[in-house]
Structures are given as structure tokens and as C-alpha cells.
């Protein structure tokens, strides 16, 4: 009974998400030229990150013991994962503003889960730019790299991208939930989303061990790409962890989403009992 109800709510949420996202797409399509320009600009501008890496490699041959194609592989996987979550719920940091100006209330009187409505807020197709750009770099890496492919490794790549997207998505949700208590703290989540993706682009060997431990055991961003990607590349993980951790991203993603759901519910409950 409770299970069918939960499933019903999830379906309701997805449906509401689709409805609202399509309204935002229509809104942007009302200004077609400006959409085309920003989409193209977004695609090009997100590429600057990779240009910076190319420039680094114009001076050196390796970074932290990793070659350019290997780093491109990390860049592509982190970029696509992040891009997916950014596309699906990239405007969740606006929640604080909605609480402050009171427009969250208008979402609460609609017959749909609030999380879905907030996630769909300002849905923008221009965010496809980042995913495309990440896929291109990933494609380049896969072409150039000499990987000893096995079935497991081949399967691990798409699994990694989707689980990574889910892990970043969970971070977005937790960050939004946090704003129920601290409306102005939207920037904190940038540390873990944008900061996370910046970090995951480079190999873990570059960073201090404590930092690597932090993103492995505390905020499990290492499961986005480091652990599975290093397995695919046939590189040892700098921490002493069992190798099977490389196959756990889906489980970690599920756990993260569960925790994020709880955080969200606690946040929403707090809003509805304090009125912020």
C-alpha cells in the first residue's frame, strides 16, 4: 500500500517535472535567436576548462603521473555526469531566493511534489552544451587511449556516467535542502558541485591524501569517476581500498539519493513548520 503510494508520488513528480520543464522550454523558445546564441555560447564557453588543460599540457607531458588522454577521460566522465545533473536540476540553488520572496508558496498549493517543481525550475536546454562538450572530450579520450577493454570495463563507462549524474544530483538536492535553513547559503553547494567537478577532472594523485579520503569516504564524489575510471584505465587508486569499490557507483548513487530525499523532506518539513 505504502509502496504503491510512493510509486504514485514518484510518477506524479516525474509528470509534473515534465510539464514544468516543457513550459520553460517554451519560454526560452519564445526568443529563438537568443536561445540559439546562448546554447552555442554555453557549449563553447564550457570548453574553456578543457582548453586550460590543453595549455597545461603544452608545457608538460604528464600531470600527477597521468597523460593528456587519461586526464581527458577523467574530464569527459566528470563533465558528462555533472552535465546530466545540471540539466535535470541545475537551478535548485534558486530555492533560497524562492523562499525569501515567498514564491515557494505558489508551488506548495499545486497538486504535485515540490521537489519535482523546484528541480524543473528554469529548466534550460542550453545546458545540453556542457554534456555535448563532455561527450566530445570523452570520445577523444576513448579513441586515443590504449585501454585493455573487457566487457566489464565497457559496461562500466555508461554506468559511471549515469551513477555520477545521480550522485551530483543528490548533492544538488542536499544543497537545496540546506537552503531551507540558510536561504543565502546557495553558494555552499557550488563547493561540492562545481568544486567537485573541477577536482574530479584531475587524477587523485595530484591531491593531498586527506582531500582524497574526504571525497571517498565523506562526500562520495570519488565514486562519480575516480574509482571506476581508474579501474578502466588500469591505474591503482592512491588509497588502500578494495578494487571492487570500482563497481559500486550505482549503489553509492542510490544511497546518496536516499539520503538526499531524507534531507529534502526534513528541510521541507522545517519550512512548513517555521514558515521561514
Amino acid at each position: 500500500m505504502a509502496e504503491t503510494e510512493a510509486r504514485g508520488r514518484t510518477l506524479d513528480g516525474i509528470r509534473a517535472y515534465g510539464l514544468i520543464a516543457s513550459m520553460w522550454v517554451r519560454s526560452t523558445m519564445a526568443y529563438r535567436a537568443s536561445f540559439a546564441m546562448t546554447a552555442l555560447g554555453n557549449f563553447a564557453a564550457t570548453g574553456f576548462d578543457f582548453v586550460a588543460i590543453l595549455m597545461m599540457f603544452s608545457h608538460v607531458d604528464s600531470l600527477g603521473g597521468y597523460s593528456l588522454p587519461e586526464i581527458a577521460f577523467l574530464y569527459g566522465t566528470a563533465g558528462v555526469s555533472f552535465g546530466l545533473s545540471d540539466l535535470v536540476m541545475g537551478s535548485m540553488d534558486r530555492l533560497g531566493r524562492r523562499i525569501r520572496d515567498g514564491t515557494l508558496d505558489t508551488l506548495l498549493v499545486r497538486p504535485a511534489p515540490v521537489l519535482a517543481q523546484v528541480a524543473a525550475d528554469r529548466f534550460a536546454l542550453r545546458r545540453l552544451g556542457r554534456i555535448t562538450q563532455g561527450l566530445l572530450v570523452l570520445g577523444y579520450a576513448l579513441l586515443v587511449l590504449d585501454i585493455d577493454w573487457t566487457v566489464v570495463k565497457v559496461l562500466l563507462v555508461p554506468v559511471m556516467l549515469l551513477s555520477g549524474g545521480a550522485i551530483f544530483g543528490a548533492v544538488f538536492v542536499v544543497g537545496a535542502a540546506f537552503q531551507f535553513w540558510a536561504q543565502d547559503a546557495s553558494e555552499v553547494q557550488n563547493s561540492f558541485t562545481y568544486g567537485g567537478v573541477t577536482m574530479l577532472v584531475y587524477p587523485p594523485t595530484v591531491f593531498a591524501k586527506d582531500l582524497v579520503r574526504g571525497v571517498t569516504f565523506v562526500i562520495p564524489l570519488a565514486f562519480v569517476n575516480w574509482l571506476p575510471a581508474l579501474y578502466v584505465l588500469g591505474r591503482p587508486y592512491p588509497l588502500d581500498v578494495p578494487q571492487w569499490l570500482a563497481f559500486t557507483p550505482p549503489l553509492v548513487a542510490a544511497a546518496c539519493m536516499g539520503l538526499a530525499g531524507l534531507a529534502w523532506r526534513a528541510g521541507l518539513r522545517s519550512y512548513r513548520s517555521t514558515g521561514s
Partner: peptide, 10 residues
């Protein structure tokens, strides 16, 4: 351009 936020982001 109307989508000011998009331009600002770029």
C-alpha cells in the same frame, strides 16, 4: 536579447 541570464553566464 531577452535571455540576459544566458548571456551573463557565457
Amino acid at each position: 536579447l531577452l535571455d540576459g541570464a544566458g548571456v551573463a553566464q557565457i
